[in-house]
Computed example of a mutant assay.
Amino acid sequence: MDGNIFQQYPKNDRSNLIAMLQDIQEVHGYLPEKEIRKVADHLGMSLSGVYGVATFYNQFRLTPLGKNIIRVCRGTACHVKNSANILMALENELGICAGQTTRDKLFTLETVACIGACSIAPVININDDYYGRVTVKEIPKILNKYKKQEQAVSAE
Rank of each mutant, 00 (worst) to 15 (best):
I36A: 00
V134C: 10
P64W: 02
A40Y: 07
R71A: 10
I142N: 07
T135V: 08
M88E: 13
D104M: 07
L62M: 07
D13N: 14
G66M: 02
L47N: 00
C78H: 04
Y146Q: 04
F60W: 01
L21D: 10
K105T: 10
Q25D: 11
N68K: 07
I124F: 13
K105Y: 06
K137F: 12
R14N: 08
Q59K: 08
E33S: 11
H79R: 13
N82T: 10
T111W: 11
Q59F: 02
N127L: 06
A19C: 10
I69A: 02
T108F: 02
R71D: 13
K11M: 08
V80G: 03
A54P: 05
Q7A: 08
S15M: 08
I86V: 09
V72C: 14
A113Q: 12
T135A: 11
P32T: 05
D104L: 08
Y131C: 10
R71Q: 15
Q151T: 10
M45L: 12
N127F: 05
D13I: 04
E91Q: 15
L65R: 06
I86P: 03
L94H: 09
H28P: 01
I69D: 01
D128P: 02
I139Q: 04
L21G: 11
N4H: 12
N92I: 03
A121R: 09
M1S: 15
E26W: 03
P64T: 07
Q25F: 14
T63H: 07
V50G: 03
A121D: 13
F6N: 07
I5D: 03
D2Y: 14
M20G: 08
K147H: 06
S154D: 05
K145N: 03
Y51R: 08
K67A: 06
P10F: 14
M20D: 09
V27K: 12
K147S: 00
N125P: 01
I36E: 01
G52T: 00
S119T: 14
A152T: 09
H42Y: 01
G116D: 12
Y9M: 11
V27Y: 14
N16D: 00
I18H: 01
I86S: 04
A84S: 12
T76G: 06
P10N: 09
A54V: 04
G3A: 09
